[in-house]
Amino acid sequence: MSGPRERAPLVAVGGILIASLLTACSGPTPETVPSVAESAAGPTIAAPETTATPASETPDPTCENIIPQATADDFTSIGWVTQQEPFRIGAIALEEGIQCKWGDQKIASDRVQIFGWAPIDEATAATAQKELVASGWKVEVDDDGTYVTENPEWLGGRGVDGYGLTYLFGDGFVKLADTRQSLILVDAPRG
């Protein structure tokens, strides 16, 4: 059984993520910039403005520049650190991408947040999607792109609305988050 001190960071992170998703779902106005405002439930994070950056000007992705700076700062403020890994989709490695696992490295826990971003060409995206589907992942297509998510039967209670690890394949990029809802926090690297 965990004590109050062990639960506090998890409660804070839960508040951060819920507030982030609720704020992001309402959509920022053109004048909105990422911000953090304290509330009874914890910090509220505004979704980042999304602006297209020409591929030649896109900086290298880092764990801090593919999510809102306020979110990275909040994770750091509760003692979370990031573990950086190459962006992989099954056997396919995307060398110009990054996959980040944020969490408390001082304790053994599966309470982490995963975010990833990589540039991808159409042929590689098609191959990756085919491999995931062959492994039992589910596909949904909408105006944002093609979502490929873990089979809901594998989740064991994780993920809101039955979505666990999810890739979003868009025009020239692929994003990854530990839930479909968290994909809203991932964007092309900002300078």
Rank of each mutant, 00 (worst) to 15 (best):
A52M: 01
G27D: 05
V112G: 02
G136V: 02
Q84H: 05
P59N: 03
I120Q: 07
F75N: 01
I89P: 00
V148D: 04
T146L: 06
A70F: 00
W137R: 00
A118W: 04
T53Y: 01
N65T: 06
T32S: 11
E96R: 12
F115H: 12
D104A: 05
S39E: 09
D143N: 09
A108R: 09
Y147E: 04
L94S: 10
T71G: 01
T82R: 09
V148F: 00
K138R: 13
T76S: 13
V81K: 13
D144K: 13
L94E: 09
V112A: 11
T62M: 04
T50C: 11
S77Q: 10
I114S: 04
G136R: 04
E150M: 10
E131K: 07
T76W: 00
E131V: 03
I92N: 03
E96N: 14
G103K: 02
A40C: 03
E122Y: 04
S135L: 14
N151Y: 02
G145V: 08
P61I: 07
T44K: 14
S56E: 13
L132F: 01
I66N: 03
A72W: 00
E95W: 02
T146S: 10
P59K: 02
P54K: 08
G90Y: 02
G27N: 08
D73M: 06
A108D: 15
A40G: 00
I66Y: 02
W80R: 06
K106P: 00
Q84L: 09
A72K: 00
E64H: 12
T149R: 07
A37W: 04
T76I: 04
T51D: 14
Q129L: 12
E85R: 13
A108E: 13
D110W: 08
P48D: 12
T127K: 12
T82L: 04
I114A: 04
T32Q: 03
T53I: 15
E64G: 07
Q129G: 07
L132I: 06
A52R: 07
T44W: 07
P119I: 07
D60R: 11
F87G: 11
D74W: 03
A40T: 14
I107H: 12
T58C: 06
A40R: 06
I78F: 15
P68C: 08
G90E: 10
V133A: 13
K101E: 14
A118D: 07
D144Y: 10
Q84W: 00
K101Y: 00
C25W: 15
P86C: 05
Q99G: 11
D142G: 10
Q129F: 02
K106Y: 02
P68E: 09
